[in-house]
Computed example of a mutant assay.
Amino acid sequence: MTAISTSRSAVCTLFEGHYHYGVGALVNSLYRHGFRGIVWVGYRGKLPPWARAARQTPEGYDLEVAQNCLIRFLPLQIDIFFSNYKPYFMLDLWDRYGLEAERLFYFDPDIVVKCRWSFFEEWVDSGVALCLDGAYAYMPATHPFRLQWQQFACRQGLEVRRWPNEYYNGGFIGVRREHRVLLEAWRTLMEALRQEGVNISSFKNYEGYNIGDRSHPFYVADQDMLNLSVMVTEVPLSVMGTDAMDFTGAGFTMSHAVDAPKPWKKNFLWLLLKRGRLPTLPDAEFLKYIDRPIPLYSPLRLRLRRLNYLASKAVGTFYHRH
């Protein structure tokens, strides 16, 4: 096996079920934009079908993707919903699995990278790398959620040290080891939610709370507590706008497929003809990274998926003109 450099930067993500397609596309996009190193993948269930060549290790499975690029699969036996497990996993990589890299990046498995990898390293060297959320990018310092979060933090013995006007998306974060206190605060707050009766084993379905919509301050637990973690720490931040995840135009860094169904589950032509839904920019970006260096589909299925997308674009253009 090729020796893999582990000293500079590492990437991690979490998946189960069909989200393995997103993991494969993420890794392909990373590699093709210059990432070299280890992608740490926590998972439940089975290994992806495209990872059949992975070799077993004492901790999981390793798959050599290409020259100097490795996926390290770690099976996880936990009762926490994966969206809520991010700070636990990132800290475990440093503390339990012996990660040597000074920079650690988490990406949701429905994100692909669009620009040179060295930009991400430059970004996190300026501070904890974060992106504004697409739905609630502006959340004033006097927002009622922030005041309720402050009360929650105080009950945990944590002091609010800053009052941002921005709300950050939890699908991506880049952290240098020296700024890990933010991850520690995030994990502490997630555990505190659990102690107060919030069921972090599910998504937006919390026992002990009447949570039915976004009016609840813990409706999106991982993301809300990430934002509170920023409030109770003083580590430097480096924040990009909604363009950074293709929530708005002119983005050059990432594309985040937040809507359902996910790009790998879509029949693009059917969605257009039956529901009038055109393919999105994240759909197009996903399809760029499904072939190499990891082939996610057989040659026939790959061709059919791309033809399905192109047909929907052509039909959509025809109807738009008429």
Rank of each mutant, 00 (worst) to 15 (best):
W270M: 02
L281C: 03
Q223A: 07
F247P: 01
L281W: 13
M190V: 15
L272I: 01
P295H: 06
P261G: 12
L183A: 08
L296W: 08
M225K: 08
D291G: 15
E191S: 04
T280W: 07
L237H: 04
L226C: 09
W186Q: 07
K266V: 04
L269W: 12
L304Y: 12
E191Y: 01
H256K: 06
P293C: 12
R194T: 05
R187E: 08
K266H: 07
I211W: 00
Y289N: 11
S229D: 09
G276I: 03
M190D: 00
G212A: 03
D246Q: 14
G251T: 04
R277K: 14
T248M: 14
L182H: 05
K262F: 10
K204I: 09
G249F: 08
E191Q: 08
S202N: 05
M225D: 04
D283P: 06
A185C: 03
D213C: 15
P263M: 02
M245V: 02
E184S: 11
P236V: 09
P263G: 02
G208V: 04
K262G: 09
L237Y: 05
R292N: 09
D291P: 00
I211L: 05
N227S: 11
N267C: 12
K288Q: 15
W186D: 03
R187L: 11
R277G: 00
A221Y: 07
L182Q: 06
K265V: 00
L304G: 06
S255N: 06
E184W: 13
R277H: 09
F286H: 11
G241P: 00
V220A: 09
D222M: 05
A257W: 02
L183P: 11
G197S: 12
M231F: 03
P217C: 05
I211M: 01
I294T: 08
A250P: 00
K266T: 01
L287Q: 12
G197R: 14
N205E: 09
A221M: 07
R292D: 06
L302Q: 12
M231Q: 11
V239D: 04
E207A: 11
F203L: 15
Y206I: 03
R277W: 06
E285Q: 15
Q195N: 11
E191F: 01
I211K: 02
L182S: 09
V258F: 08
A221I: 12
R214D: 09
A260G: 02
A250D: 07
Y289K: 05
T242Y: 00
L183Y: 01
T242V: 13
P263A: 03
L271I: 07
R301M: 11
Y289P: 07
W186S: 08
P282H: 07
A257D: 06
M245E: 02
N199I: 01
T253F: 11
S229C: 11
Q223D: 07
